[in-house]
Amino acid sequence: MASKPVRSGYNSAQRVIHWLTVIIVAAQIAFGDSVSAVERAMREGRTPDGFDAGMANAHFWGGISVLTLTVLRLVIRHRDGVPPPLATGLQARLATASHHLFYVLLILMPLTGLVAWYVLPAAGAVHELGKPVLIVLIAVHVAAALWHHFVTRDTTLTRMLRGPR
């Protein structure tokens, strides 16, 4: 996942993909339990509730969308690079590690979900383990962005909001 530094902010494609992914992942987290409800109804020989069936379907396509957007984002990142980190030392290494973990999760979560649904239901346990990790990582990411914006008063957050200047 090598990246080459570019302007002071992320380009418009990177920003759009980031915020689309945020919206889809939030919905995935909010409605992911509908998949379990549909599976339970099917195991018990019942017709799944219409809302749960719809949300499970949306979760499936949301996962495909997250996977597609993440791969596209990595391609653009490789092609266009990213702004250099504003932090240094341990803080920069932690930021890099957390971004890499995001990419791993945003690829593995959809893949394990697909494998669980179509091939090996036991992969669902691995898929579900990713949810709390992703939630904690999101919380740390948001806290770090707010820290940079309000405490260190650098442009870390605005680079993803406004792009290059």
Score class of each variant (00 low, 15 high):
48 P>M: 13
149 H>W: 12
25 V>F: 09
145 A>P: 03
93 R>Q: 12
85 P>F: 15
48 P>N: 06
121 P>Y: 10
65 S>P: 01
122 A>T: 05
19 W>G: 02
130 G>D: 13
70 T>H: 06
41 A>K: 11
18 H>I: 06
19 W>K: 01
23 I>H: 03
53 A>T: 07
11 N>G: 11
135 I>H: 10
159 R>C: 08
160 M>I: 15
60 F>W: 13
9 G>W: 05
79 R>P: 06
112 T>K: 04
141 H>M: 10
45 G>D: 04
101 L>T: 06
146 L>R: 03
39 E>W: 08
90 L>N: 15
16 V>E: 00
63 G>Q: 01
80 D>L: 04
100 H>F: 14
3 S>M: 05
109 M>F: 00
115 V>W: 11
107 I>E: 04
144 A>Q: 08
140 V>P: 10
139 A>S: 12
4 K>I: 11
21 T>L: 07
158 T>V: 12
75 V>I: 15
13 A>C: 05
106 L>W: 01
124 G>P: 00
38 V>T: 04
34 S>W: 00
139 A>E: 08
164 P>H: 11
65 S>M: 07
99 H>N: 04
44 E>T: 11
44 E>F: 06
66 V>L: 05
109 M>T: 03
137 L>V: 08
10 Y>D: 03
32 G>Y: 03
150 F>A: 11
57 N>K: 12
162 R>Q: 07
116 A>Y: 05
84 P>N: 12
109 M>K: 01
163 G>V: 07
19 W>N: 07
127 H>D: 08
53 A>H: 14
162 R>E: 07
152 T>N: 15
90 L>F: 15
74 L>C: 02
95 A>C: 08
128 E>M: 12
64 I>N: 04
124 G>I: 01
104 V>F: 14
162 R>T: 07
142 V>Y: 10
104 V>T: 12
122 A>R: 08
17 I>F: 08
157 L>N: 04
40 R>L: 14
82 V>G: 01
55 M>V: 14
83 P>E: 03
92 A>V: 03
119 V>E: 09
18 H>W: 07
112 T>E: 12
69 L>H: 00
111 L>V: 10
98 S>H: 14
30 A>R: 04
32 G>A: 12
25 V>E: 01
57 N>D: 12
126 V>F: 14
39 E>T: 07
80 D>P: 02
4 K>Q: 14
88 T>A: 14
49 D>R: 09
133 V>I: 15
135 I>Y: 08
22 V>G: 02
40 R>F: 13
149 H>M: 08
152 T>M: 13
77 R>E: 10
79 R>K: 14
25 V>Q: 07
113 G>S: 05
46 R>P: 01
93 R>Y: 05
121 P>C: 06
33 D>V: 14
132 P>T: 03
132 P>G: 03
149 H>E: 10
144 A>I: 06
123 A>W: 05
156 T>P: 08
157 L>D: 04
115 V>M: 08
131 K>M: 11
39 E>K: 08
92 A>Q: 05
10 Y>M: 02
152 T>H: 13
95 A>G: 10
82 V>N: 09
22 V>A: 13
